[in-house]
Design a protein around this nucleic acid. Structure first.
Lengths: 267, 267
DNA sequence: CGGTCGGTTGACGCACCTCAAGACAGGTGG
DNA sequence: CCACCTGTCTTGAGGTGCGTCAACCGACCG
């Protein structure tokens, strides 16, 4: 299994990539990782491939997909810089998804077998790994919320805001970026058809909330978009509001009814 | 924060619960965990609660939900025995979901702070934790697939098959069980309205695939149900089949084009 | 035995899918 | 540099799966 190895990367740089500050004691950590480059359209791993390594994206843009027997493709995520890929392979020893580069990309190769010894040397590293997987868990929960509750325009609005936020977190503009994926891929991700995605974008443009031309997107009124996410159920799962089973058990020594702490969802 | 503590559970029993076989060397592991009992309707944790511990279900049945500002509720999962809860809190230090007992239940309390030392004592334990989170990741990916690709009847069929499989894995009957959740909760989980769930169940019953009476379900023809999952797209995201961007990069030193290994989805 | 909650079933409407036509951008070859 | 070609995007018109609204029934519980 020869891969095109890139330069080596030391633990410090990996930590920087993950926005993880290692305690000084760990700075001495003498581990280094190889990297791998992929060009557009190339797959990093496929469903069923034996799992050996995790990948952290150093540069570039991916999509992860589930492909069923009929060749039908469901997009699961659009990972970018600092994101983790491959963690779905730990459970069964085989990757459960396929990762495809949407542009020329480079990933840091983190052999899973090396993790035990790494964790022992640096507990902070172990923590970071758990946190990375947890983040992925939360992200997928957010997607379930979006496709479960929101209508077409709400989903597209949520996608735009989320994408803007992710670019912003990497130091790029939050208000102007260009998408690397097609309408078809966005649609698959959101559980919509590409025409519906296109129409939603056109509608937002017409309403002055964004400016779109092909893959170039400029966000003009983020608050306006957010309104579609916050208050535009436009779809299923309304219940539970009124007579919910709050039903505090008759007499519980358990945690006091801390206020539900409603914080605005951020997808 | 006084909780109603239950009996203590040692590391060996926790390992058994997780179907994890510890190497003999780890059998000496002298750790024990407290448990906590909940009655129906009681919440184990809520969105925004500070994260300190993971929970492994020892007995009972839960739902995990996301609740937004409007009180709208999206069901994320129906965890049962041996399942992990709370891992979504690692990333931010606050739980991202709420866990509600659907019947009298008992959970094993695993303080997250204890994990580092536990991992050091038993690498197998660390592995198990990663595997548990990975399993959760795969499960959520499966849900994204289901709601992204399948129509209403396919979703309900997938839910029934998945539920049967999970009961079976715990030693209960795969063909006869009773649901602990309402149609409303199933609908939220699947992105459908309760009436649609009810209609799908009635249709399966009329077709002789199952027998339903309220929460009691008997699966008569699992293969028949599976047909709805495998071949009943009935909904969005058809593309990607024909002229997909297979586009093997002009000249790649990378992994040979291993056959995609189409395995039937199992949700 | 009455009230409430959960479930079923029917009639109707709408949001999104389907099908179709056309415009445009970017890449390739002449 | 231009002509062509292909893949992507946009927009329209019509169909439908599932949501909505509503009535009813049966289980469970007090």
């Amino acid at each position: 299994m020869t891969t095109n190895h890139g330069v080596l990367v030391n633990a410090g740089e990996l930590a920087r990539l993950l926005r993880l500050e290692l305690p000084a004691s760990d700075a001495t950590l003498e581990a280094s990782f190889s990297t791998r480059r992929l060009r557009e359209g190339e797959s990093l791993f496929r469903v069923g491939d034996p799992f050996h390594t995790l990948y952290v994206i150093r540069a570039g843009f991916f999509k992860t997909v589930l492909v069923d027997a009929n060749g039908l493709e469901q997009v699961l995520a659009f990972p970018m810089q600092s994101d983790l890929m491959g963690a779905d392979g730990i459970a069964s020893g085989h990757y459960a998804s396929e990762a495809v580069a949407l542009e020329g990309s480079e990933v840091v190769v983190v052999p899973f077998s090396a993790l035990s010894s790494l964790s022992r040397q640096s507990p902070a590293f172990e923590r970071a790994l758990f946190a990375l997987m947890s983040r992925e868990l939360v992200r997928e929960q957010g997607m379930l919320y979006v496709v479960g509750i929101l209508g077409a325009e709400g989903r597209v609005a949520a996608f735009l805001l989320n994408t803007a936020e992710r670019f912003g977190a990497l130091g790029y503009s939050r208000s102007s970026f260009n998408l690397r994926m097609t309408r078809q891929e966005i649609g698959s991700y959101l559980g919509l058809k590409l025409e519906t995605v296109s129409r939603a974008l056109s509608a937002f443009d017409a309403a002055g909330l964004i400016k779109v031309h092909l893959k170039q997107v400029d966000i003009v009124d983020a608050a306006g978009l957010r309104r579609y996410v916050d208050s535009h159920p436009a779809s299923s799962a309304r219940a539970a509001a009124g007579p919910t089973r709050v039903e505090a058990p008759r007499r519980s020594a358990a945690s006091a009814p801390v206020a539900p702490r409603s914080r605005t969802r951020e997808v």
